[in-house]
Every structure is written in C-alpha cells, then in structure tokens.
Design a protein around this nucleic acid. Structure first.
Lengths: 234, 234
DNA sequence: CGCCGGATTGATCAGTTTCAAGGCATGTGG
DNA sequence: CCACATGCCTTGAAACTGATCAATCCGGCG
C-alpha cells in the first residue's frame, strides 16, 4: 500500500480562461476550447505527493488538466494488486468520464498543480454547443486509443519490450534537452507495465549495460539509441 | 496465422430505420437513436467465418452493429502475436472510431450479419444534433470502460482469475436458458486474455473438475457455481 | 552521522509457455 | 457405410520468463 498523505486540496489561484501556458499539447488545446466555449472560470488546485485527487466510484465533479507535476490513474484488485492505466503529464486532461462516477482512482505522483472545470458546466455546454460535444468525444477517444495500445502491451509483450515501449513513450512525452526526468518510481512503472519493480529495474540495468541509455540518476535518463529501443518494442 | 476466407461482402437486405430487433442492448438503443436522428438508410451485410470486416489503418467508412454472429477486434505485433481487444455480440456496436482510420482489425468469428451506417452521415448528424453527438461520446466511453477493466485483467490477474472473469462476462452477455454457447475457439479466448490456448484449456478443465461448470460440448458451457467464479475473479 | 525510502542485484521459486502426443467430433470421398 | 483427413481441444512433460524473497547499495535529509 502506498503512503497516503491526508491533505485538503488548497486553492492556489483562480483565473479566467483562456490562460496562456508554456507547453500546449493537443488535448490541452481541446481543454481550452471546451472551457472557453463553456465560458468557465477555471481554478487551479494543488495536491501533495501521493495525495488522492479523486477515488474510484466517486461522482465526477470536475475535469482536470495537469499544469505541473504528474498524476497516475489506477484500478485495484481486492488484495491490493494495482494496474495503472495511464500517467498524466503537464498538458494532459484527465478525469473526463462520460458516466456519473469515476472508474479509476487518481493520485498525484509528485507535488502537482491542476486546472479544473466543473463537469456539470461542461455537460451543459456540450448540450448546446456541438464543438464542445465533439471535443469531449475526441478526448475520450484519445484515451481509448491509448488503452487499446496498452492492452496489446500488457497482454502480449515481453518484459523488455514493455520497458522499451515505456521509455519511448516517456521520451516522446516528457523529454527536454534530450534528457528524461521520470516523476514516478519503479513500482509505478511496474504497475503500469504489468511487471514487478525488480523486473523493471533489471531491464533498465540491462539497457544501461548495452549502452542504449545512460543514467544521470535513477530517474534521470538519456536515451542513446532510440532505434534499438524501437526494434525491441516489436 | 488464421485462415482467411476471401469473400466479397454480400448485401442481404436494406431497410429504413428504426427497425425492431429481438434483443436490444443499451448500445443498440443508442445505435438506433443516432441512426434515427441521422435519418439514415441502414444496410445489412453478411460476412463468412474468419472474414475481415475492416483492417487496422483503413479509413473508417462505416459504423457497425452485430445482428447475428460474433466479431473480434484485435491488434497484432510484427511477429504475429495478437491481442483481441473485444468480442462483439448481437446488439453490440463496433467500428466507431473518433479518428479517420481504424486502429484495430475486425473479423467475423462465425458467419455474421451486421447492420451498418455510413460514418460520414453520422458525423454530419453529430454536427447538428447534440443528442447524436452525446450518444457517440457515451458509446466510445463505454468502450473505454471495458478497456480499462481489461487492462487490469491483462496486467494483474492470474490465468485462473482471467478465465473466471471471461466466463462471467460471457455468461452475462450471451447466456440463454442457463447455457452459454461460445462462438470463439480457445485460441481466441487466449488472445483475449493474454494467455495461450493450452492455459485456457487447462483452466476450464480444472473448473470442470471442481464442478464449477459443466461442458455439454467444448463450447457449450453451463455455469454451476457463479459465486465461486466471482470469488476467483478477485 | 545515521536513518530512510528507493533502487539494484542475487538466488530461488512458481506459473505459464512451449513442445509434443493423442483424442474427439465433423465432414468428405470411396 | 466406413476410412480417413482435418480442425479443435485436451493433456503431459520440460523449459523459461518473470515473480518472490532477501541482501545490499545509494542518495537525500534530519
């Protein structure tokens, strides 16, 4: 079980959309569009490391966008086995469920700041604005695409292939100046890939030995040979 | 590799919506709603066993609903390893991708008849009718929910737990008169659960030995103890 | 400095896959 | 009607991948 910091979310700021932000991912654009269309006042909230943002089964009150930090969304089995469905990095939208309750739990991986809009307002906007409705659909479809790719990984790739895929995904999503600063620990990576933390560690060590990557520290990685990774990725 | 029957789809019928059909699943309702809203002429097509309905990467020309038979949608790795993302049974809608191309391949498991509507028309309807737009979203969200549950299964459940989950899912979706007639072979089940066909067979044999289920034939199954299965399911 | 959480590494174990053989049902042609 | 081929399923034995258990190691921080 993970340590659970019990903290009440703190409002750190509140501003009117659209707000300019450094790095705008496609999903971020859509978020801005729907928020703007809805004419919403979006707030910023901050969460501490390991703090729960929402829980499995809770009503969907907000839709979130990561500003700083990182978020994991996961499901648990009775005995505590955990499957992380996705990591959400700056720019990413999460917590958008079509139903009335969340079906995964969301937690801050590191200290994290999110922008959020009330789901009720979004819903209303979608009811009168087809552009908003279309964006809700394509955002959910983007999550589905990721889930489909991830099912292939979980069901059919070997440990090394899983780790190679993970590295390429993270490289694409958060590499800056050729360097990757992973926000999550080995256990998180394992629970994302359907592996144990030891297997993840061994695979990374092996890639390091082969010169495919270089560690600055355990979580600071430079990829030296993306092609080799892409080959392993199957 | 599966045997590929090369056959051109045959139009067997064409009728105007809404058409009454015996068993209406929730998704079926939505399909009818969107089709009705779009004022679409829906056709019926038939596919032979193992025939491809659409391929990974092909443009999304139609959205489909299973009338009779069963469909598998899957992804492949370079070397042929296959992950089946979902089985589509009578009433189910499939082939609804928000993007412009399909990201999985769809094949008929048995001889299958589908109803289909042109995606272009649906798209247009969604642009002017928020009810249609909303239904597209909730259908995609339903697929996402299934994928999220399935990631947990693929990444974290044991072979026996996977098979138990599979049996309960199929029981819920296609049991008639307490009897389940599986349309798919052991290899399909394995590729859905991230197992080999032998492991699936062994798990089923073990459940049979324990009296949890009874085989009429290899694919005709009666569940004798759903509670035991639910317990294994974790 | 010593503690602590996270990461690495080693040794062994277990579950699943792989390889292989055989059974059973279905269908076809002699 | 029977012999045989075929596809699918079951079962067994061996091999292997990844998990588990356990011992450091390392870096940051009080």
């Amino acid at each position: 079980m993970l340590t659970q910091t019990i903290t009440v979310p703190t409002v750190t700021a509140a501003k009117v959309f659209p707000a300019a932000h450094a790095k705008i991912a496609p999903a971020a654009d859509q978020f801005s569009v729907i928020a703007a269309c809805a004419g919403v006042i979006a707030s910023e909230f901050s969460y501490r490391k390991d703090e729960e943002i929402y829980g499995d089964g809770e009503p969907c009150e907000y839709v979130y966008q990561v500003i700083r930090g990182a978020v994991r969304t996961y499901k648990l089995l009775n005995d505590g086995r955990r499957q992380i469905g996705a990591f959400h990095l700056p720019g990413d939208v999460f917590g958008l469920d079509a139903g009335s309750t969340h079906r995964l739990t969301a937690e801050a991986i590191t200290d994290t700041t999110v922008r959020l809009v009330k789901r009720r307002i979004l819903e209303a906007a979608a009811g009168s604005n087809v552009q908003v409705a279309h964006n809700l659909w394509t955002m959910t479809a983007g999550d589905l695409r990721h889930a489909e790719d991830h099912m292939l990984l979980l069901g059919r790739k070997t440990a090394m292939e899983k780790v190679a895929t993970f590295l390429l995904e993270m490289d694409r999503r958060l590499a800056k100046a050729g360097m990757m600063a992973l926000p999550m620990c080995r256990r998180d990576i394992g629970d994302y890939l359907g592996l144990t933390l030891e297997t993840v560690s061994r695979a990374l060590s092996q890639l390091s030995d082969q010169g495919v990557l270089v560690f600055s520290s355990a979580r600071q990685i430079v990829l030296r040979n993306r092609q080799r990774l892409a080959d392993m990725d199957a």
